[in-house]
């Protein structure tokens, strides 16, 4: 069976001007199955976000293969969409117009775009805020817009780059619950990058721990907790056992 997303021996080095080269990824392997929710946790700067950008098609790996359904990724495409950590909303566009962005660039006619984006406004629970500008929204609402925008183009894969890192703790918990609801509804493959072990376990089918830079897979944990998951699951012994195991895998990689 062909994996949805496949990375084989991926290496990538950044060459920033006026500084030495930074090796972000080396010998990185990954398989993401169709419909799977896979999280990557790793220390800061381990290249996990970099890999997401490679899958998105914004950067190219120096060597190795990155495949989507067996075909090499050559650039951005409508089969993948990203939810960004800093939301990345165009401040001069309303909620509705922000959600339409991807459809607009795809060349979908205006009337049709309106219908689609309206539907996703409802899905992420933003009805009534269609005409608001981003600066009028809370952080959680902004990321709902970011999520709706990514979903609107109907991609197969949703890439999420620490999407809740900029939110406060309570909003974050609420958004995690919301994300699972939407994931069930939209049935997408999700590749999720985060710092938070608990968030990774709660959301995912599998959790990958990465090494420090240059990053590669250290260990993969299967999360066999039943779905649908509720908030109370976070205090069960099984959950805490996983949390401890992942922490042990991760802690040697963290340098302060």
């Amino acid at each position: 069976m062909v994996a949805c997303i496949e990375g084989r021996n991926v290496s990538l080095t950044f060459r920033p001007p006026n500084r030495g080269p930074v090796r972000a990824l080396q010998g990185f392997d990954i398989d993401v199955q169709d419909g799977e929710f896979l999280s990557i946790v790793g220390p800061s700067g381990c290249g996990k976000s970099t890999f997401l950008n490679v899958v998105l098609g914004l950067i190219k790996a120096d060597s190795g293969d990155v495949l989507m359904r067996g075909k090499p990724i050559a650039g951005p495409g409508t089969d993948r969409a990203m939810v960004f950590q800093e939301f990345g909303l165009l401040p001069w566009r309303t909620v509705l117009n922000n959600i339409e962005l991807g459809l607009e660039l795809k060349g979908v006619p205006a009337g049709q775009r309106r219908d689609v984006s309206q539907r996703f406004v409802q899905m992420v629970g933003l009805s009534g805020f269609e005409g608001h500008y981003p600066h009028e929204l809370s952080g959680g609402m902004k990321q709902r817009v970011g999520l709706a925008r990514a979903l609107a183009t109907d991609p197969d894969v949703l890439l999420m780059d620490e999407p809740f890192a900029a939110l406060d703790a309570q909003t974050r918990d609420v958004m995690q619950v919301e994300l699972l609801r939407i994931w069930h509804e939209a049935k997408k493959t999700v590749l999720f990058v985060t710092h938070q072990i608990e968030e990774a376990i709660y959301l995912s089918d599998r959790v990958m721990v990465m090494t420090k830079r240059p990053g590669h897979a250290k260990k993969i944990f299967a999360i066999d907790l039943p779905r649908p998951r509720d908030y109370e699951m976070r205090v069960t012994p099984e959950f805490n056992e996983l949390k401890l195991q992942i922490w042990h895998a991760l802690k040697d990689e963290i340098t302060v």
Partner: peptide, 16 residues
């Protein structure tokens, strides 16, 4: 830079 990456991720060309 983030916004530029956002629109590029949706397939935007330099003109877009």
């Amino acid at each position: 830079k983030v916004l530029i990456n956002v629109v590029r991720s949706f397939g935007a060309k330099e003109w877009d």
